[in-house]
Design a protein around this nucleic acid. Structure first.
Length: 482
RNA sequence: CGGAAUGUAGCUCAGGUGGUAGAGCGCACGGUUCGGGACCGUGAGGCCGCAGGUUCGAGUCCUGUCAUUCCGACCA
């Protein structure tokens, strides 16, 4: 027991210092390493596999909604950014520039893309002539660069991986439907696969994407009560179509600008996954996203070893054949206790222990990562019980995250109350808003909370703006955000 | 980009007032162990972040620089 403490000491408890906990976990679990360039990280295999799992789930959903993947260049001519005023203002401070190549100064500087609306808009203008060419439904998996002042692994890195969908439509109605459809896709992925409940809503004008007409987001609450924007979907109206001349000839033989959308989810979602489910022992991965769902650990003294390991491998084959993501750790030089701790820290949902005693009893022991419960299971029942257990863990993780979120949802009728909650408690605060940017800024200045979104179906409505007291037009979630 | 702290072995860290670098864990080898991070023995491992400067001599003092962490400003 005393030794166990030494182990736990390597991960700072969440209650002591949440930021420290986060850094400790991602490093101990071997998800990433720091690269020599500011704000850049290496996704190590265990971290990258998580992203691959996200990619797989999302990609499947994108394709099921009619999208196809393509790839656009990393470099974007400077002039492209100047075509959309808000867009250039929003991104200029974060752009890295290529000014020289092949030993010569470039005629026109090239930005390393921070997002691809401009270059894709340019290409779409050449591809779209007629209403018959619409809609264009394209997604790309890419890396982008934003030179942020302050970086944090996964949550805000200089270079990050993401997907960005870019679509063009003949009508506003269709483009708006697309915007909402993709928000639904994100919601489904994050809630059902990552087991993270989200608030769906619209961004305020101050927080919306530079160049968008409307931005919608899903927002998740981390275990320290802070908010993390898990995904965004933008209705761009005709803004980019006008800037990049995306015009088509409609049925009525008139030239019209297309309506476009864009939507993105990035490796930042991994930060959410870690901070929503992780605990003081390390990562906790929902079964549906876990690269390894079950880790088999054969146990036993040398003289029993052969028959135990053989049996464990037999189990491995059968479980893998049934479609489960199973691995075995049959290394002889590490004690079972060491392995238990190791795979708990790495967040593997279920451990399957099998030793001589189990063999004799015709059973195995399943251990849940989420509750630490040990469940002896007769081998005959294993094929039924294991998938059911994984489902149960998936559900439980969502329920726990939802319960935590509910405990940390607040309401405020006054700025004082709002700030008191933000500064002395934790979580999200719902409050009335008149619609004026100034009131939103006032809250940020008063206590550092920003508007997260205007939820589609707020738990309640307010008569007055929490800042100015004028009639409230919306209910808004406020929180400190990552 | 401003403020603070940190940078010494793979990891966590120790190295008063300058004198040529240490521990624990980990790693390698051998042996004993194995149902919650086992133990014994032997051993390998260091341009002390990087670059200058002061000095007979710098991990230690000074300057610059890079990176990380925290706080602020900024932030689809």
């Amino acid at each position: 027991m005393a030794k166990e403490k030494t182990f736990v000491k390597e991960i700072t408890p969440q209650s002591e210092d949440f930021s420290r906990w986060y850094i400790d976990v991602i490093r101990k679990a071997d998800l990433m390493d720091y690269a020599p360039v500011r704000g850049c990280i290496v996704f190590k295999p265990d971290g990258y596999e998580l992203w691959e799992a996200c990619q797989r789930e999302l990609d499947q959903r994108f394709k099921a909604t009619g999208h196809r993947n393509a790839y656009f260049p990393l470099f974007i001519p400077e002039s492209f950014f100047e075509k959309e005023k808000e867009h250039v203002e929003g991104f200029n401070p974060e752009l890295p520039w290529v000014t020289e190549a092949g030993g010569e100064k470039l005629e026109e500087r090239l930005a390393v893309r921070p997002t691809s609306e401009t270059i894709i808009g340019h290409m779409y203008s050449q591809w779209i002539q007629s209403y018959r060419d619409l809609p264009v439904l394209i997604n790309q998996w890419a890396n982008v660069v934003r030179w942020e002042k302050r970086t944090l692994p996964f949550l805000r890195t200089s270079e990050f991986l993401w997907q960005e969908g870019h679509t063009a439509h003949a009508t506003e109605e269709e483009a708006r439907a697309e915007t909402m459809r993709m928000l639904d896709v994100y919601t489904d992925f994050v809630e059902t696969v990552l087991a993270i409940p989200v608030y769906r809503g619209q961004k305020t004008p101050l927080e919306k994407f530079a160049g968008a007409v409307d931005t919608f987001s899903i927002e998740a609450m981390m275990k320290d009560g802070k908010a993390l924007q898990a995904g965004t979907s933008h209705y761009l109206g005709q803004n980019f179509a006008r800037s990049f001349n995306i015009q088509f000839l409609d049925r009525d033989n008139t030239l019209k600008y297309a309506y476009t959308t864009s939507w993105g989810m990035s490796t930042r979602i991994l930060g959410a996954l870690i901070m929503v489910h992780g605990d003081d022992r390390g990562l906790v991965l929902p079964p549906r996203i876990a690269p390894t769902q079950v880790m088999i650990i054969p146990i036993g003294p040398q003289k029993e070893r052969e028959r135990v390991v053989q049996h464990a491998h037999d189990l491995l084959r059968r479980l893998a054949a049934s479609g489960l993501r199973v691995r075995i750790d049959d290394r002889e030089d590490l004690s079972p206790g060491w392995k238990f701790n190791e795979y708990e820290m790495r967040g593997i949902p279920v451990r399957l222990e099998v030793g001589p005693r189990d063999l004799d009893a015709g059973q195995v022991v399943l251990v849940r990562r989420d509750t630490a419960e040990k469940l002896p299971v007769a081998e005959g029942d294993l094929m039924q019980r294991l998938p059911a257990l994984l489902d149960e863990i998936q559900r439980n993780l969502y329920d726990m995250a939802l319960a935590f979120r509910r405990e940390n949802e607040h309401e405020a009728e006054s700025l004082e109350t709002l700030c008191d909650i933000i500064q002395n408690q934790r979580g999200f605060v719902l409050a009335g808003w008149c619609g004026d940017d100034a009131c939103e800024k006032a809250i940020k200045e008063a206590c550092g909370a920003t508007s997260r979104n205007i939820p589609f179906d707020p738990p309640r409505t307010f008569d007055r703006c929490v800042v100015c007291g004028r009639p409230a037009e919306h209910s808004v979630w406020y929180a400190k955000a990552y």
